[in-house]
């Protein structure tokens, strides 16, 4: 018996007290945050930050960004990843999920403190999976963050499936001038620099 998928609807402008309450100062404990770091860390600490732009080039101040990533050893904290959950591995507490609204930063950035992911398989370059929500977006969109300093990008099958002239929209450049390595990843909903979104 086949049942039809429940349709998506927009997250709307007022998601913050339900989905990102702590970030926005509401009295509800959050299930997650934008800080993925754990007390024991084996890997490189990085910051991922960026802004969301609409079709006029205006910064979106009411978007919500979610990230899902592997740990520095390339493992997802999920039962389908049979390499995870082994207490003998480092980063066993690393959950790999974060959520950040763009409404609390003075420049409307999303900012994640995390660890640089490792490659999850032999084919793919290290990447972070991204889900984009906002008022005015009826169905969420998926994209990926790749790292400009990874040689493996050249052979990544997902990057290769993207028209060459659009690949740059998926690649975050590193800036280590502030002490911690910052990868900047802006999301353009429309226009010449429209970010590549995937039909996941």
């Amino acid at each position: 018996m086949s049942k039809g998928q429940t349709p998506s609807q927009t997250v709307g402008p007022f998601f913050a007290y339900g989905l990102t309450p702590q970030q926005y100062g509401y009295p509800l404990a959050g299930i997650t945050s934008s800080d993925l770091r754990t007390p024991e860390i084996a890997g490189e600490l990085i910051r991922i930050e960026g802004r969301v732009f609409d079709g006029k080039g205006d910064v979106v101040g009411d978007a919500m960004i979610e990230i899902w990533q592997a740990d520095p050893q390339g493992r997802y904290a999920h039962p389908a990843d049979s390499r995870g959950g082994n207490v003998a591995f480092p980063n066993i507490a690393f959950r790999g999920f974060g959520r950040c609204g763009t409404g609390t930063d003075a420049e409307n950035r999303f900012v994640f403190e995390t660890l640089k992911p490792g490659a999850v398989d032999d084919d793919q370059a290290p990447h972070v999976n991204v889900i984009v929500f906002m008022r005015g977006l009826l169905s969420h969109l998926y994209t990926r963050i790749y790292f400009a300093d990874e040689a493996a990008n050249a052979g990544d099958p997902v990057l290769q499936s993207v028209p060459a002239e659009r690949r740059d929209t998926l690649i975050a450049a590193a800036d280590d001038s502030s002490g911690v390595v910052v990868y900047r990843f802006d999301i353009h909903m429309q226009g010449d620099k429209e970010t590549v979104f995937f039909d996941v």
Partner: peptide, 10 residues
């Protein structure tokens, strides 16, 4: 102004 205009990539 907020919806993507290009087709999603499989």
């Amino acid at each position: 102004l907020r919806g993507a205009t290009k087709p999603l990539i499989p």
